[in-house]
Design a binder for these strands. Structure first.
Lengths: 137, 137
DNA sequence: GTATCTGCAAAACATTTGCAATTCT
DNA sequence: AGAATTGCAAATGTTTTGCAGATAC
């Protein structure tokens, strides 16, 4: 909890109650949530919370580079506080988004020789092992 | 033009005028357009065209697997009739989306051992060589 | 003549914006 | 008090839906 406050401060963000709770949610859940998911859970703890604040706060986190968006499904933006380069796998059955390690393959792509690459995004869709095992029954 | 009609028929799509024109647009432009881009250009040729028809038609193409969506920017779905596995590069300056070849690296990803992978998506963002050269002046 | 296709208008969502009220120091 | 933050209500933008009229076979 204190490390969350420190992390916010270190990145130039005043640690208001809402901001602390939202960042805490991202870090502890690690579930790549939508705004809806964050709102629905936190409104129990903070009854006056509005979605506007969730949007404002997440946009602030992105501006300050302590979070980023994951775009896998059109019309469903998800958020992640895990900032190292990594990929994702979305299970089409249960909807879970898994983090996956990806190596840095940028240099191998010949067609991008003279291009300046700022971001690399990799994701897969399919069915996760848990859902595959359920289907065996 | 005739090959477009043939392609539509072969995939179980009745080749109406609108469908032919929209598919022709995808194939000849190869520009990964938004609905807006398709609509704005084709409404010149087909003055009664509606965006609903563009949406309906693209959704039909996707259902019949002769097109797919590219999701790079949230709130901006793009469409592609190039069906082989490939990646994309989006230039943040000029907005152009380039196709890039990617090798099939799926088997190398250990953490996905027991997962069933149905789709692989790779894209980059940065600045393309044309825009980089303009900046030298 | 019956099926399908098209396109308008309205609805459904997700996200942003304007602004007034609240909070913090 | 003054500045920043919050949250409501309205606006915006994208995509879908319902349905009536047009088109095609």
């Amino acid at each position: 909890m204190n490390d969350v406050i420190g992390h916010l401060k270190k990145n130039g963000i005043k640690p208001s109650f809402q901001r602390i709770k939202i960042f805490e949610y991202l870090v502890t859940k690690e579930n790549h949530p939508t705004v809806e998911m964050i709102y629905k859970e936190l409104v129990n703890e903070i009854p006056t919370l509005s979605k506007t604040t969730v949007y404002n706060t997440l946009n602030l986190f992105i501006e300050k580079k302590i979070a980023h968006t994951i775009v896998i499904e059109e019309n469903e933006t998800r958020y992640d506080s895990h900032m190292e380069v990594h990929g994702h796998f979305k299970c089409e059955k249960c909807g879970t988004i898994y983090d996956i390690k990806i190596d840095d393959k940028i240099s191998e792509i010949k067609s991008l020789d003279k291009f300046q690459i700022d971001e690399q995004h990799v994701y897969y869709k399919g069915i996760c092992d848990k859902c595959l095992q359920k289907n065996l029954n």
